[in-house]
Simulated scan of single mutants.
Amino acid sequence: MSTRENNVQKRKLVPQKERIWIIVALMVSDFMLFWEINGLLQHSLAYLHSEQFEDTMKDFGSIARIALFFVLTYYVLLRLMKLRFLKGQINLKKWLSTLLRFSRRWHTPIAILAIALIILHTVAVFLHGFEFDFDNINGLLALFVLLPVPISGLFRYQRMDKKWHLRSGIAFAILFLIHSFL
């Protein structure tokens, strides 16, 4: 590969084979955000402070949690592939590599959808009434730590992130798990 071809490939923000699914995920998440926020803003104040709305708010968070667990499986599988005891396990390693390819392919599109659900969950929490308790403060901290993750993910495609995507992702995962389960 010549230097010129290498420079052309570096200029692309997202690789060609992943671009279509990322664009589809962005379109679906934009539509979902517009549709749901528009729907949330049309409810009365009495409904926004009801238990039924609290269930809706928690549903956004629960669906985002499932999506984020799928996103995190990429790193778990990547770590499993590097373990020493798998050196002689050819069949298991082939099966894990198949799962790793699948999770890598869907890592970014599912992460985009999960971020949209997190935004919906955050908007719903503020509409319902934000209280300064451990759970909500921890959720806000997780949201602030989440902000650099997609940006560093774009740098990751260019191999310029110096592991910031992984580090900020791990910090987010820890805060997210605390927020979800405590």
Rank of each mutant, 00 (worst) to 15 (best):
N91F: 03
R105L: 03
V123A: 11
H128A: 10
W95C: 07
G139A: 07
R156S: 09
R79K: 10
S97P: 06
W95S: 12
F176D: 01
R79Q: 10
V125W: 09
L146K: 01
H128C: 03
D135L: 00
L140S: 04
F102M: 00
K82P: 08
T108N: 15
L92K: 14
F155H: 06
S97I: 12
L120R: 06
E131N: 07
H121F: 11
S152T: 15
S103T: 15
H128W: 11
N136T: 10
L166I: 15
L113I: 15
H121C: 07
A173Y: 13
I119H: 08
P150R: 01
D161H: 14
G129E: 06
A111G: 15
A142R: 01
V145R: 01
V125F: 07
I137Y: 08
L146E: 01
L127R: 03
L92F: 09
D133Y: 02
L140E: 01
N136G: 02
L141Q: 01
T108F: 01
D135S: 10
G139F: 00
L113A: 14
K94N: 15
L140G: 05
L175M: 13
F126C: 00
L127Q: 03
F172A: 15
A111V: 06
F130N: 01
V125D: 02
W106R: 05
L141D: 00
R101Q: 10
L96W: 11
L120K: 04
Q89G: 00
F134Q: 02
F155N: 03
I112G: 12
A111S: 15
E131Y: 10
A111N: 11
I90R: 14
K94M: 13
M81H: 12
F155Y: 13
A116V: 05
K163C: 06
P150N: 03
I90H: 13
L147R: 00
K87F: 12
V123Q: 02
R159F: 08
P148C: 07
L140N: 03
F85R: 11
L80N: 05
L143T: 11
K93I: 06
F85N: 08
H128T: 03
A171K: 11
L143S: 11
K94F: 09
I174A: 14
R104A: 14
P109T: 02
R159H: 10
V145S: 05
I151M: 08
R156Q: 07
I119W: 08
K94V: 14
L147W: 04
F155E: 00
L127W: 04
F102D: 00
L117V: 08
I115Y: 12
T108G: 13
R101E: 05
A116W: 07
P109A: 04
L100Y: 14
L146V: 03
K94C: 09
L113D: 07
P150G: 04
W164A: 15
S97M: 13
R79I: 06
F176A: 13
P148G: 04
I170S: 12
L99C: 12
N91R: 14
R167C: 08
I110V: 15
G129T: 10
I118P: 02
L154H: 05
N136E: 08
I151Y: 07
P150D: 04
T108C: 04
V149Q: 02
L154D: 12
R79S: 13
F102Y: 12
L117Y: 11
L86R: 10
L175N: 01
R104L: 12
M160I: 05
G88M: 09
H121T: 01
L141V: 12
F126P: 00
R101D: 07
L83C: 08
A171G: 05
